[in-house]
Design a binder for these strands. Sequence first.
DNA 1: TCTGGGGTCCTAGGACCC
DNA 2: TCTGGGGTCCTAGGACCC
Length: 417
Amino acid sequence: MSKSLIFHIDVNSAYLSWEAVYRLQQGDPLDLRTVPSVVGGDPLTRHGIVLAKSIPAKEYNIKTGETLYSALAKCPDLIIAKPNYLLFRQCSEALSLILRDYSPLIQQFSVDEYFLDFTAMDLLFGDPLATAYKIKDRIKNELGFTVNIGISTNKLLAKMASELQKPDQVHTLFPEEIAEKMWPLPVGELFMVGRATTRQLLSRNIKTIGELAHTDPRLLKAIMKSHGLLIWNYAHGLENSPVRPGGRVAVKGMGNSTTTSFDVKNRREAHLVLLSLVETVSARLRHDQYFARLLSISFRTHEFLSYSHQRQLSHATDCTNELWEIACRLFDELWKGQPLRHLGVRASELCQNDFLQFSFFTKDYERDRKVDQAVDIIRQRFGSQAIMRSSYLHSGLKSMTGGVIAEEEYPAMTSLL
DNA sequence: TCTGGGGTCCTAGGACCC
DNA sequence: TCTGGGGTCCTAGGACCC
C-alpha cells in the first residue's frame, strides 16, 4: 500500500480572479488582477464589505471583510466589482471537471477549494509534484485563472501547504518539513485558529505555530477544552479525515439570512422579511426532499447585538405557510421593539420526507402543500420572481431572499476537515 | 464601524427524570 | 428537606470555516 498523498487546490483571490477573467473575455482591456481592486457589495443597501481583493489592493493593507468605506479610505482609486455568484459557480464547476481527470476522489471544500486524493495515482501519472505543476498550468491555460496547490500526506497539511506563498504556486508540506515551513508562521495562520483563539494564545505569549506545538496540551485543554487539543494536534500536523468522494456529507440544516437595506421597525415589515426568507428555505427543503423538525430565527439589532430563538416542531414539515407562522411566533416572542438590520431563518433536524406524518392537533396544511408545489413549478420554469404575494408590492422588499446558489447545493463547509 | 451570507460544532445552564 | 448525583434533552450564544 502506498503512502497517502493529498492535494489541496485553492483558487487565488477566487471571486476577484473570476471576475477579472470574465471581463477580459468580454473584451475589457483591463485585467483587474493587475490594479488595486475588490469584489464587494453595495454600501447603499448595507452590503458594503470586501469579499475578495487583488494583490495590488492587498499592498494597500485592504483586508477581506472590511468595509468598502474603509478600503476606499486606504486607496481612493480602488475599483469595486459586484459579486456575480452564477459566474462563480460556473468557474468552480469548470475547475472540478479538470481535477476529475487526475483522481476519482475529489472533495469540494468550498466554492474555491478542492481536496484531491492522489494516493497511488502516481502509478498512472508519474511524479506527484510534476503532476501538480501540470494541473496548475492546465487550469491557468484552459480557464485563465491561477491556483495554489498544496501537497502532503493529509488534508490539514495539504491545506496549510497551499497557503504558503501565493499566487500560482505548488508547495509541499510533508511531516518532516513541518518544523521548517509551518512552525515559524504566526499562530493565527493555523487552520481553526481564529480571532478569539489567537487573542487567548497571544495573551499567554504563544505567538507562532511552533510555540503552540511546544505548549503542554494539558494546559491548552484546561483553557480551551476540546478545541485546545484540536489545534495542538493541528500544530503537529496530526489529522486523518478522508477525502470524501463527491463531498456529499448529509446536510444538517438549511438557512437564509439577510441584512435589510433599511432598519426594520415594525412587526408587519419583520414578518414580511421572514416570509421572503422562509420562501427560499422551504423551497430548498422541498427541492432536496427534506422535512425540518426544528426552526430557528435570529436577528441583529441596529446596535449590532445578535439574538436567536428556536423551537422543536410538533411534526416535521416543509410547508411555507406553516414554517412562516412558526417563524413569526418565534420572532414575536423574542423581539422587544429594537430597530433591526438583519434577520435570519434556519431549518434543521432534517429528515427525509419519504412518507408523510400528519399531526391531528394542527390545522390541515394539505391545501398549502398543493399551493407550494404549484408555486415551485412556476418559479422553476419562469424564475423566482415570476410569482409573489401581493403584500410585497410597494413594500421595498424582495419576495425571495437568500439562496444565491440554487439547484445543486454545495456540500457542507464543515469546520472540521 | 458606514461592519455579508452560507454553514458546522461546542459549551453552559436549566429542566426533567430516576 | 438544612436537598445527592447522574443522565438526557433543550436552548442560546459563541467559536470556527470560506
